[in-house]
């Protein structure tokens, strides 16, 4: 393996406050949470000589706490821990499903939600669920604390809007006002387990009186430089009954929010058609 450990400087904070202080002093340092993505590149010898902010000692950011308005997931909670948490399981099943599809057990036991977000992969499997739940990312830096809607965190492929020295402390998951009538998480990967997404979808839908859609949120990953909400398709649906014409219009509008590409894992044609099929079967109520 090509990583050279003796070329690495490691900062090892023991608390969130210390992490912020150290990172503020060394903004070029790489914050390391679960390391499941960083270490792959490090093993290829591509990241020798870096300074690492090892967050493993920051216990206070690992907690998952349920409150009256929602759940606060510490940025260093692992995918396995999130998937096991009873309140998360009861209220945020789309996130639970997403966590269960990230790598396999070994990765779920190491990878963290905060690391996943900061890494900002276009194929991040938790992001469509976070977008649908309108999660809020809490950050902290020497300049103070911020709350960002998840939709404002991603800036592009592996890029975020976080500033220098800014760390993710936790992710707020606000409870939904009302139970959705339908929900969906669907990951289409390169194989049936331990796969990277070709497309990944999350959605909720609530029907009101007379079959009128009161709430509809739908998000896709691996379909654009960042995970995206299908706002155009959503607005074609909310306030309407799910007639064939409405469903068709929503499916037509899908393309306006995404820009899938041909790559080593799939094709633009496939990603679009499958995403449309998933959206359609969700709206038709037969997923």
């Amino acid at each position: 393996m090509r990583g050279a450990p003796e070329t690495m400087a490691v900062l090892r904070p023991k608390s969130g406050a210390e992490a912020v202080k150290l990172y503020g002093q060394q903004t070029k340092a790489v914050p390391l949470a679960g390391g499941t993505d960083f270490m792959v590149l490090w093993n290829l010898g591509l990241l020798n000589g870096r300074t690492i902010l090892d967050l493993s000692g920051v216990r206070d950011w690992r907690k998952i706490a349920a409150a009256r308005t929602g759940v606060l997931v510490g940025s260093l909670a692992t995918h396995a821990e999130i998937g096991r948490h009873p309140t998360v399981r009861a209220e945020f099943p789309l996130l639970v499903s997403a966590c269960a599809t990230i790598g396999a057990a070994q990765i779920q036991n190491r990878g963290t939600l905060g690391g996943n977000i900061a890494n900002a992969s276009p194929a991040g499997d938790t992001f469509p669920s976070l977008l649908v739940y309108e999660a809020v990312v809490r950050t902290v830096s020497p300049r103070g604390k911020r709350k960002l809607p998840i939709s404002e965190v991603f800036a592009g492929v592996k890029r975020t809007t976080l500033g220098p020295g800014e760390l993710i402390e936790a992710v707020e998951l606000p409870f939904l006002d009302k139970r959705p009538s339908r929900r969906l998480f669907r990951k289409v990967g390169t194989r049936l387990a331990q796969a990277i997404s070709k497309t990944v979808a999350a959605g909720i839908l609530r029907l009101g009186k007379g079959g009128v859609v009161e709430d509809f949120r739908f998000a896709l990953g691996s379909m654009a430089p960042t995970a995206v909400r299908l706002t155009e398709a959503e607005s074609a649906v909310v306030g309407f009954k799910l007639t064939p014409a409405v469903v068709d219009e929503a499916c037509r509008r899908l393309e306006r929010s995404v820009s899938p590409i041909d790559d080593i894992r799939s094709t633009r044609e496939y990603r679009l058609e499958v995403s449309r099929n998933i959206l359609r079967s969700f709206l038709e109520g037969n997923q």
Partner: peptide, 16 residues
Amino acid sequence: MVNGQFTNYIIPTAMD
């Protein structure tokens, strides 16, 4: 070969 890693050269898992 441009997908020469186990992440992208897909062999069957126990599930597949």
